[in-house]
Structures are given as structure tokens and as C-alpha cells.
């Protein structure tokens, strides 16, 4: 696109989970379909994208983080990127808050915020019928909610589904972590008497939701594993908000 002298409306930062993880790739595809449906001209960095550095930074490897940031900022600035949308709250937080000081200044948007804007601008419409009668609960990702105070956009998007939205007893600012952040995704948990995602899945079961709406590929994996732990995968499904909207839009 850049070679053709065109500039996209937004750059879709796919992230490592969204690029490589089989489950998260479905989220990536669902979101891309939504962008196409809404006629959003978007670009991806493809093979030029690299890890944002979040897991390195949060586990204390500041060197590796800054090396990654440096490389990514060079690529992003070379393409004169202004707006970035991402389906990963970890990339979202890092690009939005930690890149500017290192020379990367972009408007960074989480995909739930972006979808919400598309709805508000009338570029995207859905019939929520297929979810009628379902109970949906939203699991707040730490790096979207507490870390960046985004609580309403994902909920507003879910309103479009014509389903019953229920909150878990711990939600929004007091939402419980899924257990993956701070690089926990990549290691075994320390010794304890329970896994964090199991604790969180108990909240889900208590809410009697049929669907857990996630906004983060890490949370998605953790919650899916949590539901499996209780052998409830037939009753409770874990889906990203982009997938739910794409499903409602028959994409």
C-alpha cells in the first residue's frame, strides 16, 4: 500500500498471539472481516511486525523491551503510521503508553473501541437476533480496564447483540485478572493452592453466563482453559468481542 502511495485509515497491529496462536488467529480474522465489512481501509505490517516487548518489559528485561520498541518504532515511523488499532490490550498499552517516550507517537485504539466507533458512525450494523436469550458476561482485561480505564466501549459494543448482559461479582475496576499478565502466560505459576484462571472461572459460573466475552487473546486462552477445568465447555463458550460481532453480522 505504501509503495502505491496510498495511506490506510488505520494500521491493524495483529500482535504475536493474533499472528501465531491458532485460537487467536480466529479473532484476527473476525476483526479483519469486520473492518472489511465497514469498508475500513487498513494495513498490516505483516512480516515486519515484531513483538511489542510487553512480556519482556513486565518480566524485567528492559533491554529486550527497548530493543523491540526501537525496531518497531523504526518500521512504524518509516511507514508514517498515525493510527493503530489492535486486538491485544498488552500491545495496546505498550504502544500507547510506553512507545511515545522512545519516539513512537501514534493514536492507539483497542479494537473494542474501534468497533464501537464504527457502530456509532453507522459504518457497521448488526442484527443481534442470533444471541437472543443468551447471557453474556464481559471479562475485563487488566491492561484495558485498570491499566487504561477503558470499561465502557466493550460493554457498549456488546449491547448491540440483543443478549442479556450480566456482570460477574468482580468486574470493571475490581475485575479479577485471568492470570496471564506480567509474562505469566509463558511460565508455570508459582506454588499455590489454585490457578488464577480457575478462580476467575468460578466467577463466570456464578454469573450463570452462557458466553464469556473477552477482549484479549491472553484472557481468551486462560478463560477457555478455566472452563475446560470445570468440564463446562458445552455450556459456556469463550469468545472475543470481535468474534461475537462478526457472528452476529453473519461473517
Amino acid at each position: 500500500m505504501a509503495a502505491a502511495g496510498e495511506s490506510p485509515e488505520v494500521l491493524f497491529w495483529v500482535g504475536c498471539m493474533g499472528s501465531f496462536d491458532d485460537r487467536a488467529k480466529k479473532i484476527t480474522k473476525a476483526f479483519a472481516k469486520l473492518l472489511n465489512r465497514a469498508n475500513v481501509k487498513f494495513a498490516v505490517l505483516g512480516t515486519e511486525e515484531s513483538c511489542s516487548g510487553d512480556p519482556a518489559k513486565r518480566s524485567g528485561n528492559e533491554f529486550l523491551f527497548q530493543m523491540q520498541a526501537f525496531a518497531n518504532i523504526q518500521v512504524l515511523n518509516a511507514y508514517e503510521v498515525k493510527r493503530i488499532v489492535t486486538a491485544c490490550p498488552h500491545c495496546f498499552n505498550t504502544l500507547k503508553n510506553e512507545y511515545p517516550e522512545l519516539g513512537g507517537n501514534y493514536e492507539v485504539i483497542h479494537h473494542t473501541q474501534f468497533i464501537n466507533t464504527l457502530f456509532k458512525e453507522g459504518r457497521l450494523t448488526v442484527e443481534g437476533g442470533s444471541f437472543k436469550g443468551k447471557r453474556i458476561t464481559f471479562h475485563d482485561p487488566c491492561y484495558l480496564g485498570r491499566a487504561n480505564d477503558v470499561y465502557e466501549a466493550p460493554r457498549e459494543v456488546l449491547q448491540k447483540l440483543d443478549a442479556e448482559l450480566v456482570e460477574m461479582k468482580r468486574c470493571k475496576q475490581r475485575g479479577l485478572c485471568c492470570g496471564a499478565g506480567g509474562a505469566q502466560m509463558f511460565k508455570e505459576a508459582e506454588k499455590g493452592d489454585k490457578e488464577v484462571n480457575v478462580e476467575r472461572t468460578e466467577d463466570v459460573i456464578e454469573s450463570k453466563a452462557d458466553i464469556v466475552a473477552a477482549g484479549c487473546p491472553f484472557c481468551n486462552t486462560m478463560m477457555t482453559d478455566g472452563v475446560k477445568h470445570f468440564n463446562k465447555e458445552d455450556e459456556i463458550s469463550v469468545k472475543d468481542i470481535a468474534e461475537l460481532i462478526a457472528e452476529a453480522a453473519d461473517l
Partner: peptide
């Protein structure tokens, strides 16, 4: 994980070239 990020630009052992396969 660090080594993977250094070598492959992702926390797992996937090739950079496969990033856009989705």
C-alpha cells in the same frame, strides 16, 4: 521467551516469515 523474542520477534518459536499466514 526472551530468546524467542530476540530471534523470532515473538515469545514463541515461530518464524517471522509466518507472521502473516492467518
Amino acid at each position: 521467551m526472551f530468546t524467542n523474542i530476540e530471534n523470532n520477534g515473538a515469545p514463541w518459536q515461530f518464524a517471522m516469515a509466518d507472521r502473516a499466514n492467518w
